[in-house]
Amino acid sequence: MSQLDPELEDLLGPLRDGPIALSSAEQSLALRDRLLPAVRAAAAAVPLRLRRARALRRGAIAGSICAAAAAAAALVLVFDLDLFRSPPLAETESVEVEPLGRESVTWIDAAGTRRELAGAAALATPGEIVNPETSWSRLSTSNGVRVEVAPRTRLRVSADARRSRQPELRLVLGEVHCRVPALGQREQFSIATPDAQVIVHGTVFSVKVGAPDDPRTCVRVEEGLVEVRHRDGSIRLGPGAQWGCAQPAPSRAAIDEPRPRDRRSARRTPVAAGSRPSEDIPDGTLEHENRLLAAALAAERARDLERARELFSELLASHPDSPLVPEARAGLQRTR
């Protein structure tokens, strides 16, 4: 290190030598409690992954045949595209389900056998979580996705035969709150609902589906960027944005059971039971708001501050109740 170019030394010095704050013993213990289940789940998935890798190696045939098969499979996928199919949830076929309240959670496996879960359990997919009247539960996958499932919710976790037998997630009824870690460029997480597909690459958000007679979807984003594909197209939602929800966000007072003790829960967007899709914001408005914000940000990046101010102001004037208002205000301040 001593032979480093002085300029490099200046550049790297702050990163290399600057003070860093480490967790206290108490924080470390608390972190251990929070992370260890996921680390255990990742370890539990290792034998299966290794078996698969060995099987793949054994099954490797001539490259050209594989390439042709892959191309054919890709064609099938492209032309047989199911808009509402959920991509892989985890790399394995097992998930962990943990009841978070006093009541047990029901797991119905592929054979239709019902199993009452009183504590955390590792379960092989496919299957369906049926939550009790007042208790929440948590579903965790080996790739770090955590889904908190609200009372009275039905959530299907199934194997997708067309996609390497990996599990997929489908919200039949109720609501879920998701925390998705960064999954890398090639992975994504999504939830399919009867009328939409919500796709993310690392964020915190919630999805709700109404009763069977009106099973429309409401998506609220707290952090990160979420894409919602629906019958009329797709829309990208930033922090604070929502799609298909009642406005404003209702309180969760109607839910009997308190949310899980996880400290992260407090930061998630609450969604009440009983929000009605009939009060939805028109999709067109949201799209327009998104477009305005995107254009304003693009103008700001291009240092066309006057244009950026114009667009931020237009967004504020034409959509004063938009969830993007805080971002527009911040943008306006930045460009003044």
């Binding site: 990163l15 290399r16 600057g18 860093i20 704050a21 480490l22 972190l31 929070r34 992370l35 996921a38 680390v39 990742a42 370890a43 290792v46 080996s142 790739n143 770090g144 925390r179 870690p181 960064a182 690392g202 992260r264 930061r267």
Partner: peptide
């Protein structure tokens, strides 16, 4: 912490990702 210098929920997510990759 040396490379990123931040804490909070994202830091925890990265800790978890690190462990999964390490395994």
């Amino acid at each position: 912490r040396r490379v990123l210098r931040y804490s909070g929920a994202e830091y925890e997510d990265l800790m978890q990702s690190s462990f999964e990759r390490i395994i």
